[in-house]
């Protein structure tokens, strides 16, 4: 989609991200936190878990939990379509999958284009928001995989709702 745009920014001072979309808002994960991106396979429901845990899946012999980021962010569920993807991430020694509306290609963004999140955001309980970046016409919110999907803090993330940056235009306001 959007690759390194300007060679005027030093190549060495840029980082790679995977961009994805949830309910029209674009987000980024740091590429080194991502194991792979798969099309969602069959998911087995599990009991006694929060609603945003869709269930567990078999990833080549490993059983991983699948979390629907729409539900985690408090947005209405949507039936998977051809664009739906599961991003498999590693958190500590755990492997987990998270379902997103769509995934774009790998994006390279110069480090100086990445702005850290205002303190107000962290105070808002959105510790998973690491910062934001502009690439072309798009505004991305950079999410920290570790604090977003750590099983211990999932409930907090869920309570905080859709991650966003106050004052920055977002394509959709979460309710």
């Amino acid at each position: 989609m959007e690759s390194a745009r300007a060679p005027d920014a030093k190549q060495a001072a840029s980082a790679q991200f995977v961009g994805f979309e949830i309910d029209g808002q674009k987000y980024l994960f740091r590429i080194e936190r991502i194991q792979e991106i798969i099309t969602p396979g069959s998911v087995t429901r599990v009991p006694d878990v929060a609603g945003y845990v869709v269930g567990v899946s078999n990833l080549r012999g490993t059983i991983i939990p699948i979390i629907d980021l729409r539900l985690l962010f408090g947005i209405k569920a949507r039936d998977p379509n051809a664009d739906t993807r599961t991003i498999v991430v590693n958190i500590g020694n755990r492997t987990m999958g998270c379902m997103v509306d769509s995934v774009s290609q790998v994006i390279r963004i110069p480090v100086d284009q990445i702005h850290s999140a205002p303190d107000a955001v962290a105070a808002d309980g959105q510790r998973s928001v690491e910062g934001f970046a502009r690439a072309g016409d798009d505004l991305f919110i950079l999410l920290d995989v570790g604090s977003l999907l750590d099983p211990a803090s999932l409930a907090i993330v869920h309570r905080a709702g859709l991650p966003g940056i106050p004052g920055l235009p977002s394509s959709d306001k979460a309710s």
Binding site: S42, V46, P47, D48, V49, P65
Partner: peptide
Amino acid sequence: KSLDENFMRIRGLGGASILGDGEVCL
């Protein structure tokens, strides 16, 4: 296979396993 290895322990479930067709059973 354990459930808590990647996620969490669920009371009443001893783990999970993968069936012949790749589906996960509890």
